[in-house]
Design a protein around this nucleic acid. Structure first.
Lengths: 134, 134
DNA sequence: TTTGGTGCAAAGGCTTTGCAGAAAG
DNA sequence: CTTTCTGCAAAGCCTTTGCACCAAA
């Protein structure tokens, strides 16, 4: 729940593993799960462990280098683009893509008026059927 | 992933358990997790099992009686209101509330133009700090 | 060196499931 | 009666974590 903690991002080291995980994530426009990323990185660094992938994805998203997506489905997904942007998820195969729509910050102001919460951010997600599943 | 399957909703029976789970869910405006609901129902039906709660929540959301929410955090939450509406989640305590904002279906048309997906629905969620956590 | 990172394997948290008996229709 | 549902407990799936060793700075 506590997602506001600041972690120390200044003492991070650049390890082979961390670099490769980021490289692989940046190389795809899809939004892979930790395990998918693990399979990708393993081709170049066969001895890397799944735990290391999870640990690094966690750290990098805490530091704002990447983004952890909590889209439908059971597994979390990761996005090399840490900026706010919108996504679509295929209801059949679970694939997640970006939607190239400019984020509309005004909805946050509106939501702030309609509730007693102090709004920090918003997230807009679409569900649909991807071209391959049609 | 396959969330489009139709399940047979015509042969459902009205059991004590199912009725109570729905009653409890309808009685709150919060959006409880399966376990929270289990604790609530247990006060009135001490011998109910957690598995039964999960099973019924699954069935009722498949049949469109209730809604399963996939909001941030590790646990799924449930909503007696199956209509499309928006939510806020507190970044500190994880509480989820409704936002009384009319759903804007036009964003779906826009997203359809900007991607190759056939859009089925959208979901808008806010993150903020609830009054109790301020 | 010092401190942070890694691999491994075990543990954890939430959810699903198989099965035999119970209950709804 | 027949079919669906329940309680229980075990299994499953994804993710986190403890520990001893390794490597970056």
């Amino acid at each position: 729940m506590l997602e506001l903690d600041q972690i120390d991002c200044s003492s991070l080291r650049i390890t082979k593993q961390r670099q490769l995980i980021l490289d692989e994530l940046m190389s795809v426009k899809s939004h892979p799960t930790a395990d998918e990323l693990y399979q990708m990185v393993r081709k170049r660094l066969p001895k890397i462990s799944l735990g290391t992938v999870y640990r690094n994805l966690e750290i990098m998203s805490d530091c704002g280098v990447i983004q952890k997506l909590d889209i439908g489905g059971t597994q979390k997904r990761f996005d090399a683009n840490a900026e706010t942007h919108y996504h679509v998820r295929c209801a059949k195969c679970g694939k997640v893509d970006d939607i190239d729509m400019p984020p509309d910050r005004s909805v946050e102001k509106e939501a702030g008026k309609l509730s007693k919460y102090t709004i920090i951010r918003h997230r807009l997600e679409f569900t649909g059927i991807c071209p391959a599943c049609k």
